[in-house]
């Protein structure tokens, strides 16, 4: 039993991350509003909410749009149901900025907003507009409940953070284990270290496959394409290619001892190059590549404690599962090696 404790612990961590990650409700949010333009004069827009309570909290409902310095409230709001409402704006002022954020506040949901919900159309944009009157007052705090943040575009897929991202952590971890065993093999020449390095690399490759496939699916329905050119994605693809090449190298040399030596050298060299590319460069290049490039994801979610409470256990749990898989792989490989030695003797 004592040998199993970390396996049981990581299984429990993964299980709890799945259960809590899927059960926790998503915070109320505003996925979109149509049309996405505000015209000069009267514009009527339909706002679609998600997990919101427009009808239930109709008395306290407040709607407004702002572009940073000017704020406008609709002169008419018609609630259709809990997740739909129609708002009619009348805007004729001069403005400083073209993008409007949409805000909705009520007693149950608190304040929810959709950034850059509307683009102004035909309004007069000037450098120093007159300040507008404040039309919003007495905001409600909303009910305090455990939920995950409802980001625009991501919506429910924010839960993927608990599956997709830990698989990359697990990959980096077992690749690091593989690196350590490669170093040990080169310095000591112990065949068991070589088997361990290979097994760890194999498990790492499995988690890289998971990371690539899940990331691709996620990207398709949030960014709109199966693959986008971004330093981190390219780094992941390179890591995948490097470890495929590692196994090609192994299999192309017949002498076991030599194959281990060559693969060990390549493992160390490639790991350092990959780490440089995946971890260091996207951060250094960020100043020149803002926005979707780099890794904007974490800086946004980091602030949310609810998500973090599930995310960290998920990371440790998946790393533990990866180590478990690595151990199984290694034990089977050692058995196979011993059998081969016995047959040869």
């Amino acid at each position: 039993m004592s040998h199993y404790w970390w396996k049981i612990l990581s299984a429990i961590l993964v299980l709890s991350s799945i259960v809590f990650g899927l059960m926790a409700p998503l915070a109320p949010g505003i996925p979109f509003a149509t049309p996405d333009q505000l015209n000069n004069g009267v514009t009527s827009v339909t706002v679609v909410g998600y997990n919101t309570h427009f009808a239930e909290a109709e008395e306290s409902l407040q709607v407004w749009v702002t572009n940073g310095d000017a704020t406008f409230c609709p002169y008419e709001v018609a609630v259709v149901d809990d997740t739909h409402l129609r708002a009619t704006f009348s805007i004729t002022e001069e403005l400083a900025d073209a993008f409007f954020d949409l805000y909705i506040n009520n007693a149950i949901d608190g304040t929810r907003h959709l950034p850059s919900a509307f683009l102004q159309n035909g309004l007069e944009v000037v450098d120093n507009p007159r300040p507008t009157e404040k039309c919003v007052s007495d905001l409600e705090a909303g009910l305090d409940a455990y939920n995950f943040p409802n980001q625009p575009i991501l919506n429910e897929t924010i839960r993927n953070l608990l599956f997709h991202v830990p698989s990359w952590f697990a990959m980096i971890f077992v690749m690091f284990v593989s690196l350590l065993f490669s170093i040990q093999y080169l310095s000591k020449g112990d065949f068991k270290a070589d088997i361990a390095a290979t097994s760890a690399a194999k498990v790492g490759l499995i988690f890289a496959t998971i990371g690539l496939a899940t990331g691709s699916l996620w990207a398709r329905f949030t960014w709109g394409a199966w693959w986008v050119s971004d330093p981190r994605l390219n780094g992941a693809a390179i890591a995948f290619l490097i470890y495929l090449a590692y196994f090609v190298l192994r299999s192309s040399v017949n002498d076991e001892e030599k194959a281990g030596r060559l693969a060990g050298v390549y493992n160390i060299f490639a790991f350092v190059m990959m780490l440089l590319f995946v971890m260091v460069l996207p951060r250094m290049s960020e100043s020149l590549h803002p926005g979707v490039g780099g890794n904007p994801a974490f800086s946004q979610y980091d602030l949310d404690d609810n998500l973090r409470m599930v995310f960290y256990p998920a990371v440790f749990g998946w790393i533990g599962m990866a180590m478990w898989m690595y151990q199984l792989q290694r034990r089977a490989s050692v058995l196979a090696y011993n059998r081969l030695m016995k047959l040869n003797a």
């Binding site: 290619l241 490097i242 090449a245 090609v248 490639a270």
Partner: peptide, 8 residues
């Protein structure tokens, strides 16, 4: 072996 390593 070379392409993935040189790509970055």
């Amino acid at each position: 072996l070379g392409l993935p390593v040189i790509l970055p």
